[in-house]
């Protein structure tokens, strides 16, 4: 038990923070824990979570992907157009996932092969992907996605919970498995820990980055499909700033921005915490402007806890 605690101390502290948040809000506002509210929290965390999981993969390699918000919009537009063209549903899902994967691989190509700094390279594609979305839609949202396509991710499991939550959960499990139990996962941690050492240990660094950026973008792709399901539209202007929410979920969950460290469980809890906080502030009737401040403060505190735990660890091992 103690060993487990030690190994996952970071995840414990996020979990505790989540409970504290929930308890605090439910004391201040008893209706916070109503079924609809809990459903809203979970549903909202699906988008942050899926994108955050993808971001976690990329950040583990020592990179970052600023293009995910734009990619979300682009995949949503293309997905909506394909749905309106009545492409068979399984093929529709596969095409979208494949397309999203390629968007990620292209980022990985810029960062891995051309050796651009991840921040700059993906800032470029952030603009490019956004622009392509506007070009193919003429700037207008793609409306009226057929019901059958919307039902793929949006059919209701209970009165309030939809299938999208299951997708979120499954994606988290699959990516955890990929990171912990497959070669590409080990290589991702190796590249993020020490790129030169990884290369000299036979890790094909460029290929690893391309694959991981691609796999990471699948999370955003799923988030885009779920967004189509929920809203019935693909909006080329959606997802602005979502890359920051994805980074926030990863960071709150204990993923080191320096690379080499982080796991999906932390990010999932981080996403739920992020969502619980935002919903809580809305339920409490806190002014939108203050919501920004509170969210920002939470991110700063999370980062600081990371540092404190780092120093404590260093002191212990001395």
């Amino acid at each position: 038990m103690k060993a487990i605690y030690r190994k996952y101390r970071r995840e414990w502290s996020v979990l505790i923070a989540l409970f504290v948040t929930i308890i605090l809000f439910s004391i201040l506002e008893p209706s916070y824990l109503s079924a609809t509210n809990v459903a809203t929290i979970i549903t909202q965390s699906v988008t942050y979570g899926l994108m955050g999981i993808g971001m976690t993969c990329v950040v583990i390699t020592g990179g970052i992907d600023l293009s995910v918000g734009s990619a979300l919009a682009l995949v949503a537009c293309i997905g909506a157009q394909l749905a309106k063209a009545e492409v068979p549903i399984p093929i529709w899902v596969l095409i979208c996932l494949g397309f999203g994967f390629l968007l990620g691989v292209f980022n990985g190509f810029l960062v891995g092969k051309l050796k651009l700094q991840a921040f700059i390279g993906t800032m470029g594609t952030m603009q490019i992907y956004r622009g392509i979305g506007y070009v193919i839609t003429g700037g207008y949202p793609v409306l009226n996605v057929p019901r059958s396509y919307r039902n793929v991710f949006n059919f209701k499991l209970t009165s309030t919970i939809t299938f999208s939550v299951v997708v979120f959960f499954l994606f988290a499990v699959v990516i955890t498995f990929v990171l912990k139990k497959t070669k590409i996962g080990s290589y991702a941690y190796a590249v993020g820990g020490n790129e030169d050492a990884a290369r000299l240990s036979g890790v094909r660094v460029e290929r690893t980055k391309m694959l991981i950026y691609g796999i990471g973008m699948m999370g955003t792709t799923l988030a885009a499909l779920i967004m189509i399901s929920r809203l019935g539209t693909g909006d080329p202007s959606t997802g602005q700033g979502y890359e920051l929410d994805a980074i926030a979920a990863a960071a709150i969950g204990g993923t080191s921005m320096a690379g080499g460290r982080g796991n999906i469980f932390g990010t999932v809890i981080g996403a739920v915490l992020f969502s619980a906080l935002k919903v809580g502030l809305v339920v409490m009737g806190v002014d939108t402007f203050y919501q920004y401040i509170v969210t920002g403060v939470v991110i700063v505190i999370a980062a600081y806890i990371e540092i404190i735990q780092g120093t404590m660890l260093a002191k212990k091992s001395n």
Binding site: S186, Y189, A190, N194, D196, A197, L200, G202, V203, R261
Partner: peptide
Amino acid sequence: EGILPNFNNMDNMSL
């Protein structure tokens, strides 16, 4: 160029 600082012994050995 040798050690992966975020890896334990068995992961460093097996990479």
